[in-house]
């Protein structure tokens, strides 16, 4: 009589297992949904950041052989022998804003001491790469436009 009836014990056991399976399953689905939901919520869809395209004015503002720094937009406009080009003033090391040193004729970063030539090439580290050249073109009105979000792979010059 003490021997339990197998039929009687199987039924509650299987329903308990089912309950745990469904429970754990729905908790997993819920967690996955919450992760996606949380990620989507945390990533802003609209950014109120300044436009990456900067109007640098008329090209004749930049005489030959000069390097002009625009601190607001963080770019250099350089007028070299081949023409005008724009570089990002953001250091390729950890993103500090570099500065043009006219007395030395170099670009230097205040944070960790990287130095660059006026074409962006590296004089000394810790920056791993040269300064980034930016897409530059003339608008229909004859203004020099620079897109800070479009790095150039190869050097391009704007001739006027």
């Amino acid at each position: 009589m003490n021997e339990p009836d197998p039929k009687e014990t199987t039924k509650p056991e299987s329903s308990r297992r089912q309950f745990v399976q469904i429970g754990v399953g729905s908790i997993c689905v819920g967690c996955a949904g919450a992760s996606v939901f949380g990620y989507e919520f945390l990533a802003p869809n609209v950014l109120y950041e300044p436009s990456p395209i900067t109007n640098a004015g008329k090209p004749d503002r930049y005489p030959g052989g000069t390097v002009t720094q625009d601190e607001q937009s963080g770019i250099y406009i350089v007028h070299g022998p081949e023409g005008l080009y724009a570089m990002s003033a953001v250091c390729t090391h950890l993103g500090c804003l570099t500065a043009w040193k006219p007395e030395l004729g170099i670009v230097a970063c205040p944070c960790h001491g990287s130095k660059f030539r006026r074409d962006g090439s590296k004089i000394e580290g810790p920056a791993p790469r040269p300064l980034v050249w930016l897409k530059t073109w003339l608008s229909d009105e004859g203004d020099l436009l620079v897109d800070r979000s479009s790095p150039l792979e190869q050097k391009q010059y704007v001739r006027t």
């Binding site: 990620y39 945390l42 990533a43 802003p44 950014l47 109120y48 950041e49």
Partner: peptide
């Protein structure tokens, strides 16, 4: 970095 800053640069977000 984008999620941490809530944007592409250190700003209001």
């Amino acid at each position: 970095r984008f999620l941490m800053l809530g944007g592409n640069s250190v700003n209001a977000n």
